[in-house]
Every structure is written in C-alpha cells, then in structure tokens.
Design a protein around this nucleic acid. Structure first.
Length: 319
DNA sequence: TTGTGTTTTATTGCCTCC
DNA sequence: GGAGGCAATAAAACACAA
C-alpha cells in the first residue's frame, strides 16, 4: 500500500536525518535545533532528545517511575556494535511514545483534533517523530475520543430514560387510583338513581306524599359528591339515559307491574349507603338488590353503562 | 513467573473529496 | 488518481492478580 509505511521502513530514522550523525550526536538525530515547548523542558529529568523509535530499539518507556532518557544513543551502550548490528537485522518493535510526547500530543489535540499537513510536520519535527506517527496518533486519539463520547451520550440517555420511566410509573399508579375512585362513585350513584326512580313511581301510584327514605338518608353533601364525578350534568344524563330511559319498555313495565303486585311500600329498597364500605356497596349493587324490586333489571347492561359513565367522567376530569 | 485483560501503536481496506 | 479519514483489526507493551 502506498500510503502505509511498512514497519521496517521506519528503521531508516527520522526524516531528513543522517544516520552517521545519529551515531555521533549525543542528542540524537531528531533533536530539533528549535526550542521545544517549555512543557517538555520542565518537570522531568529526561531531556527530550527525539524519537526513540527512530533511533534506538530499547524500550525507554518510563515504567515504575524510573527516569530514563527518551532514547539512548548507541555510543552510550557498552556493546554499541552489537546493538547496531541488531538494529539492521531485527524488525523494529512497536514502542510506546514517552509520557512527555503523549502529553504534548494531548495538548495539541485539545487545541484541534484534526491535523493539517503543516501542523503534522511541525509536531513531528518538535517531537522527533515521523509525520506518519503523529497522524496515526491523532487518528487513534480521535477514535478513543469518539468512544468516550458515545459512552457519555449513552449515560445521558440512560439517565433520562430512568427519569421518564419513574414519571410514567407514578402516573400509572395515579391513574389506577383515580379509576377506582370513579368506579366507586359510579356504583354509588347508580344505586341512588334506582332508589329515586322507585320512589317517584310509588308517588305516582299512591298520590301520597312520599315517605322519601332517600330524602332522609341522603345528604346534600353526598349529592354534590356525585356531581363532582360528572362535570357536566348533561353528560351524566346521557350516561344515565342508557340505563334508565323512561321510554324504555323494560323499565316502565317492569317497575309498574312489580309495584302493583307487591302493594306494600316496604319493598322500597333504599339503604343509607353513606356508611357502607366498598365491598358492601359492591354486594349491594351486584347481588343484594332483590329481584322483585327490579324484576327486569337484568335486562339492563349494567357494566356497559357503568363503563360508559366512567368514560364520561374520566374525560370530564381530564379537562 | 506467568496467564490474562487492557491499552497503545500500527496496518489494512474502504470511502470521500478535490 | 492521490491524499486523508475512518472502522476494524493485529500485535506489542503494559498492568496486575495468583
């Protein structure tokens, strides 16, 4: 491949350097005549001498805090000739950049994470690296930055999701509570309606002033409680009419005949429900209503009507 | 010391842009 | 078509527990 440099290809040393100078120059061939960034000249006993990877194969990475020069020149070695021989006969090993080099590159990356050709050459010159090494370092650094960014984004999204889910769960619970309340009030209201209708029928038959047990037992407060359920009276009426339509043959015929047959006001069923528990009310509304009072009540689709009413009430509350 | 997991450096192949 | 970027990957270097 044209643009990629074979590992062995980098053995020749720094760009523009001459290898004999490498052997003679204590500072190494890649040391720039220009002053380096002060960053490199402070805080470390190791002088910046250029790319070790271009000069010496010895690992000069400062492991365990030991301070070794960035690279070692051959004339510093006891057996420099042997190493020189190895230099030409072994493939170059991969080496890490020094701490200072990485630091310098990091600073540069913070300024601009893309590398223009001139900047690349300048950096390479200052660090004593091949321009390609600088380019590769930036390439890998961008990849690492992207990975970190993705992790951050994921964390942010996850946090946001958890928060939204908590809100959603809370709303679901609230909805269930409100639904149960609607159901309770609906049952109450239907029971009361039945009692009222029964009474009015009795009145029309006997032409007597009603004993009206309802009037005695039902407080204004309870009525208003029911009216809270429905924000619009007409909505309630429409819901009610599904059940207790006075034009309905089921209703009129049934009640009338039963009333006439019973001939006794004691059949009027109107318990004071205000003290009843939910279970008691349920039993009353579903099971305890005597069949002789509402002989054809089973013809009414009770649950459907209640559901219809619940819908009305729910949407009223939504406003 | 060694096995193993992680990090860093470098390569390869593909894509886009000029 | 060449240069440069990116994703995937190889491989060396490193860290660390057993």
């Amino acid at each position: 491949m044209i643009k990629s440099m074979a590992t062995g290809g980098r053995v020749a040393g720094c760009s523009g350097s001459n290898f004999s100078a490498l052997l003679q120059n204590q500072r190494g061939p890649c040391a720039t005549s220009q002053p380096l960034d002060p960053f490199f000249l402070t805080g470390s006993s190791s002088s910046f001498l250029g790319s070790r990877s271009m000069v010496s194969f010895e690992d000069v990475h400062q492991v365990n805090g030991s301070t070794r020069p960035f690279f070692r020149t051959f004339d510093q070695d006891e057996n420099g000739d042997d190493e020189l021989d190895e230099y030409f006969h072994q493939p170059e090993k991969k080496r890490r950049l020094s701490v200072d080099q990485v630091h310098f590159l990091e600073k540069s990356f913070e300024v601009e994470n893309k590398l223009e050709p001139e900047r690349k050459i300048q950096l390479a010159k200052e660090l004593g690296l091949q321009p390609r090494q600088v380019a590769i370092w930036f390439q890998n650094r961008r990849a690492r930055w992207k990975t970190k960014q993705l992790e951050k984004d994921y964390e942010a999204l996850h946090t946001s999701y958890n928060s939204l889910k908590a809100d959603y769960d809370a709303l679901l619970k609230e909805k269930d509570i409100l639904k149960a309340e609607v159901s309770l009030l609906t049952d109450k209201m239907l029971l009361r309606e039945k009692g009222n209708l029964e009474l009015s029928d009795k009145d029309t038959l006997s032409q007597e002033p009603p004993k009206n047990p309802i009037g005695d037992s039902t407080s204004e407060g309870e009525v208003s409680k029911v009216s809270i359920v429905a924000c619009k009276q007409e909505d309630i009426s429409s819901a009610k009419s599904d059940i207790f339509d006075s034009d309905s043959p089921h209703y009129t015929d049934g009640v009338h005949s039963s009333l006439l047959e019973a001939g006794d006001s004691s059949y009027v069923f109107e318990p004071d429900q205000s003290d009843l528990s939910q279970d008691e009310e349920d039993n009353l509304s579903k099971n305890l209503l005597p069949s002789y009072v509402f002989p054809k009540l089973e013809d009414v689709n009770y649950s459907e009507a209640a559901a219809s009413f619940e819908d009305h009430a729910f949407w009223c509350w939504s406003y």
